[in-house]
C-alpha cells in the first residue's frame, strides 16, 4: 500500500496518463489505478482531483448513457492536459532517477532482486 502522502504529488499526473490512452469515467479510473498497483483508491477520492483538473482545463467531460442505465461522466485529456502530462513525465523521470541513484549509492533497496537493484541506472 502506497502511503497517501507519497501518492499526493503523483496521483494527478497518473490520472492524466490514464486518460492519455482513451476517455474514461471516474470508477474506471479508480479501477485502473488499482490495477496498476496503487491499492484501493475509491472513486470518491479520485472525484475531487478530477474536479480540480476539469476546472483547470486539463481534462474535459462529456455525458453518455451507460449500459447499466445511469448516465456517466467521461473524462478526456485536453491540449493543456497533454502539455501538463508531458511536464509531469519529465519531472517524474528526473525524480525517479535522482531517488534511484540516491538509494543505490546508499545501500540499495532492501529485499530487492539483482535486476531490481540496478533499476533506473541504465
Amino acid at each position: 500500500m502506497i502511503p497517501s502522502q507519497m501518492l499526493k504529488g503523483t496521483l494527478e499526473g497518473c490520472v492524466l496518463a490514464i486518460l492519455r490512452q482513451e476517455e474514461r469515467y471516474g470508477y474506471e479510473i479508480s479501477q485502473k489505478l488499482e490495477g496498476f498497483g496503487f491499492g484501493r483508491i475509491p472513486e470518491g477520492t479520485v472525484y475531487p482531483l478530477l474536479l480540480r483538473l476539469e476546472k483547470r482545463g486539463s481534462i474535459q467531460a462529456s455525458f453518455r448513457a451507460s449500459p447499466e442505465g445511469p448516465q456517466r461522466k467521461y473524462y478526456s485529456l485536453t491540449a493543456q492536459g497533454e502539455k501538463e502530462l508531458t511536464e509531469f513525465l519529465q519531472h517524474y523521470r528526473e525524480l525517479t532517477r535522482a531517488v534511484d541513484q540516491l538509494i543505490l549509492m546508499t545501500g540499495g533497496y532492501p529485499y530487492a532482486s539483482p535486476n531490481e537493484s540496478t533499476f533506473g541506472t541504465e
Binding site: G26, Y27, G44, T45, Y47, E68, P70
Partner: peptide, 28 residues
Amino acid sequence: QMLLDAEARGEQAEDVIGPDPQEFCNNI
C-alpha cells in the same frame, strides 16, 4: 451518478465515497 452506478454494481455508498462523507464533501 456515482451512487447510482455503485448500486447497479451491487456496491455500498461507502465503497464509493469512503468511510467519512464529511471529509469527502470537504475535499470537493
